[in-house]
Design a protein around this nucleic acid. Sequence first.
DNA 1: GTGGTCTAGACCACT
DNA 2: GTGGTCTAGACCACA
Lengths: 123, 123, 123, 123
Amino acid sequence: MSGLWDDNQPIYWQLRERTIASILDGSLKEEAALPSVRQVAVDFQINPLTVSKAYQSLVDDGLVEKRRGVGMFVCAGARRQLLASEREKFLSEEWPKLVARLRQLGLDWKDLEARWPGREENE
Amino acid sequence: MSGLWDDNQPIYWQLRERTIASILDGSLKEEAALPSVRQVAVDFQINPLTVSKAYQSLVDDGLVEKRRGVGMFVCAGARRQLLASEREKFLSEEWPKLVARLRQLGLDWKDLEARWPGREENE
Amino acid sequence: MSGLWDDNQPIYWQLRERTIASILDGSLKEEAALPSVRQVAVDFQINPLTVSKAYQSLVDDGLVEKRRGVGMFVCAGARRQLLASEREKFLSEEWPKLVARLRQLGLDWKDLEARWPGREENE
Amino acid sequence: MSGLWDDNQPIYWQLRERTIASILDGSLKEEAALPSVRQVAVDFQINPLTVSKAYQSLVDDGLVEKRRGVGMFVCAGARRQLLASEREKFLSEEWPKLVARLRQLGLDWKDLEARWPGREENE
DNA sequence: GTGGTCTAGACCACT
DNA sequence: GTGGTCTAGACCACA
């Protein structure tokens, strides 16, 4: 019940991001049911409304679909869609900004390369 | 009035970050005066209180000093201090998280390397 | 499983409306048997209880009658009854609201006339 | 405090639709401030969260913009955007369905024409 | 002053 | 069982 949540971000958003991560890493398969709103609420000791808000945002993005009276399910194609959009977002938006910042800090390519797991001694 | 501010972050924080960037890239030299609270407020169409909050946070970090009746000035040594702390923060906190995220997205070292300015054709 | 149901309306209601449409257009004749609850449930991949609820609402309105051990049948006079009530409902309730909305949208009589099948070129 | 809300639709949705109607009919001008969440909550005797949900849906559709710590404002171009999208939706989606239904009911063009305000005796 | 978020608990409709 | 909606009231950050 502590250390689970980062207090600087809304819980519903963090829950959303965790769910996305689960889809990406395969622990939530496509067509699989998401844990029910109530279950998650109990498990994480948060309000059902908060869970609902997180899930709804996924529905809005077309990653999850509701089946009335049954539950919420990962959409077919959700993983592929996520991979594409997240990669695109990173490469076109985040990376250029990051590069600019690194330049400003005087950090070089080598500095990063040395800290990329598995590359420390190879090259 | 549009595109100037990212609505997901407090304006005062964005102003702080911009000021830091100016110190880092040298457009705000050490010992130089920061533009006055009023001036910034007018220029950016924001509340003077917001500017004040941004400047105060810089004072709190020892990057800027207030000289009563005169204005706010970049501290001597501010740039060096910034370089050190920002580098440390990036390498120990941000980079590891980023690496984890990239793995999840299936983005490889090569993908980034190809987009590091000046390296596209070298290696 | 996709496109069959409008997620904004209860499934049982949509099934009811479809059945009514079948009676109106004559594909479900008076005195004819409705497809069995089980059959519909299988065909549309929905819960038998949901089908039951739809049929029951038709019984409540006197459009369909249950014959124990045999099945459900369209009542004699159902079509005439439907025509009268639906016309009345449309003209007195729906059309006035629609007219108000069209005004707000600046849509004119002509705009609709042009899209009434068979009138495009007549007048 | 009674008769204000239709119990068949969520309040937040009805509030959304009312606001849209206000923009369309000009009682809410572009760039004008929407009444504050709290004010609406008091005026209509509903929960601030419900108002918030309504307003947020307008923000999501790009019809309203938030100005941090100041309030919510009708976007420039919101009215034009609304007119275009609502007309399009009506003519391409709703009207064809309506026409089919009217045919089924045996209602003719004349029946509607007679009830279009201001046309009863003209033509 | 503004809106954002969360809780605790209730009631509802649908399957 | 499922999710959707709403209330009442709290606390927070921002301007």
